[in-house]
Design a protein around this nucleic acid. Sequence first.
DNA 1: TGGTTTACCGAACATTCGGTCAGTTGACAA
DNA 2: TTGTCAACTGACCGAATGTTCGGTAAACCA
Lengths: 201, 201
Amino acid sequence: MATPAPTRQRRRGHDPESVLSIAVGVFNERGYDGTSMEDLARALGVTKSAIYHHVPGKEQLLARALDRALDGLFEMVADERAASGAAIERLERVVRQSVRILVDRQPYVTLLLRVRGNSRTERAALERRREFDAFISHLVGQAAAEGGIRADLDPALVTRLLFGTVNSITEWYHPSRGASADDLADALITMMFDGLRSNAA
Amino acid sequence: MATPAPTRQRRRGHDPESVLSIAVGVFNERGYDGTSMEDLARALGVTKSAIYHHVPGKEQLLARALDRALDGLFEMVADERAASGAAIERLERVVRQSVRILVDRQPYVTLLLRVRGNSRTERAALERRREFDAFISHLVGQAAAEGGIRADLDPALVTRLLFGTVNSITEWYHPSRGASADDLADALITMMFDGLRSNAA
DNA sequence: TGGTTTACCGAACATTCGGTCAGTTGACAA
DNA sequence: TTGTCAACTGACCGAATGTTCGGTAAACCA
């Protein structure tokens, strides 16, 4: 035991990571604009000024949170661009992966989906998000062109409804209770790809 | 022409209705908490203080807007409680009607769906919304019990995904361009009830 | 014409906002 | 025991917030 564990109990108190994760929780409860630094301080159990010891300010907290969501999505896009196979099957895999990311990084993705573009930080995030949306649109377009999607459905509309459904998970999903990410993805894909209607009826 | 038309060109200027509709537009662009009375004044082409000549304050604008959305939804619920027939078919009709309301009152419903509960006004709206959700949950539960919904899908999950999809329309729908409310409802119901996958594949 | 009403402005208000800064505290190493 | 340093406090700043109020000018009615 020449050197003790490098990450020992470092006094008690916060670090940039704990501040970020608690702050994002409050942002999602009250909305970013509806959250004051005083609100954050209360949730952290410290005074307002202590927050500035760990992070540069409110907008940087938002920027870091949004990057976590977007980085996750773009890692998947990078993997998936190299994939082959029928577009409808690649789409199914992308939906499954999106649900996984949304569940794993739920607070960060939730925050991302609520961004309106009120600051440069928010507009930059919206720009990256549009890039992600374009990737999905292209994939749905391919699946439609290959005949994998019902011909009576507009591919642009399918894109919006499909990812509207995926994104709506942030509104109610709570990791502790309820289904796992995989079970959730299974149910969502069954419903969206094959329909909720029973064939017996 | 003993009496001129009662709603003549009343000077030019605003009234409570025009203030509300413009304000709701700005609320949806920037978020309620992200919108200052100065922002509203700019959008209305008047000074801040002029707004108080027409409406009691910012929170009252929100309250009136939320009531427009909720009143529409509950009018439908009242109609539908008296309906008969298979639950799966009543569900289909409720989804169609919900899309219609969402399109007709898009700005108001959009605002409602973003409420977080930061004030008494917002909490009251959330309470009414939960009541609406309970009605939908019950209807989906009936449809499942009658065998109208695939047995491998959890009814609670179907409720959330189905209305998550419907509600996500507010994120992108623009009444001027794109499909009509009926066409949109047709496509959504086809996709959610029968699936997007082509049977040919 | 004169008086009333409607729509509005400009200045001010108390409060809250995000952020700064000079200290204080307490765990730890030497 | 002493010195170091990260974590934190409390007082404070200027700017922005929602709201109030006294006044004003134009349209309308008698």
